[in-house]
């Protein structure tokens, strides 16, 4: 299955230049985010290293922020932090969402109802407010941000996985496994899971791009990462205050965030086209 998918993916990239563009862009950003602090860019937290709100120069390629810190290493740090936060949150979403969605779709009855009701409640609760309440209960910081992002993305994940599970569960090989006496766990893990993975991965790329937007919205409301750590969202928030006198403070993180989300979306589209069994053919 995986091999087949990757073969398809390879084929797709050859045909799909946008998907390739997304993949390359994402890779570059990921490398920057992960290994950025190894580069000789300077200390992202050195206050007063330069003038306040200084324009880009040789010494400070992206200018300096309101505390006279070099902006380039901060943006690079922001890439890493944003990716890390979003990735953790989305992995949590994917694991919980897949398990609950599968359970709801396959087990039917009380379990289905219970999970569906939980998803309903989460769906109906205004997402941002739920996040703010959750963040207030846990206390601010990265963990709260992760919880907010996860709770905002889980309900949709559950629904998508549940509906795919419903259709897969009716397929012959699943029915056959049940008839031959396989345990519920075995059916779910061995027979169902691999077949809903495709849909889950597609949903995951959506959740990832949305989570980056949520992270920046949280920063706007003062609930993002704790200073001095920088995320792309917190940099954008700060920058938007100084938009008129130091536009580079918005431009740099803004372009990077846009590139990150766009690359994930493009890649997500490509993966979807490659994995979605219904989308192999198209109308000519």
């Amino acid at each position: 299955m995986i091999a087949l998918a990757s073969a398809r993916l390879g084929r797709f990239f050859r045909r799909d230049s946008l998907g390739l563009l997304g993949a390359v862009l994402l890779l570059v950003l990921l490398i920057l985010g992960i290994f950025g602090d190894l580069l000789p860019l300077g200390d992202p937290n050195a206050i007063g290293a330069g003038p306040r709100l200084g324009a880009p120069s040789l010494a400070f390629p992206l200018g300096t922020d309101d505390l006279g810190r070099s902006y380039l290493p901060r943006v690079v740090e922001g890439i890493g932090v944003t990716f890390l936060l979003s990735a953790i949150a989305v992995i949590i979403t994917a694991v919980i969402g897949t398990l609950l969605g599968m359970a709801a779709g396959y087990l039917h009855g009380a379990t289905d109802h219970l999970i569906a009701r939980i998803a309903d409640i989460l769906f109906a609760f205004p997402a941002l407010l739920f996040g703010l309440l959750a963040a207030a209960v846990i206390g601010p910081g990265s963990i709260a941000a992760i919880v907010v992002i996860s709770t905002a993305t889980i309900p949709l994940f559950i629904r998508v996985v549940r509906s795919v599970t419903l259709s897969v569960a009716e397929r012959e090989f699943v029915v056959a496994a049940v008839v031959s006496g396989a345990s519920t766990w075995r059916v779910m893990l061995v027979h169902l899971l691999p077949n809903i993975l495709g849909a889950a991965i597609i949903q995951l790329t959506y959740a990832l791009s949305v989570s980056m937007i949520i992270e920046s919205a949280l920063s706007f409301l003062g609930l993002g990462v704790q200073p001095p750590a920088a995320s792309l969202g917190s940099l954008l928030r700060l920058g938007s205050v100084y938009l008129t006198i130091a536009p580079w403070l918005v431009l740099a993180p803004g372009l990077v965030l846009a590139a990150a989300i766009m690359s994930i979306n493009l890649l997500g589209d490509a993966i979807r086209d490659a994995l979605d069994p219904l989308r192999g053919r198209s109308l000519k």
Partner: peptide, 9 residues
């Protein structure tokens, strides 16, 4: 370590 939190808290 800096802890930014809502006023009420």
């Amino acid at each position: 370590e800096i802890l930014q939190m809502p006023t009420a808290e």
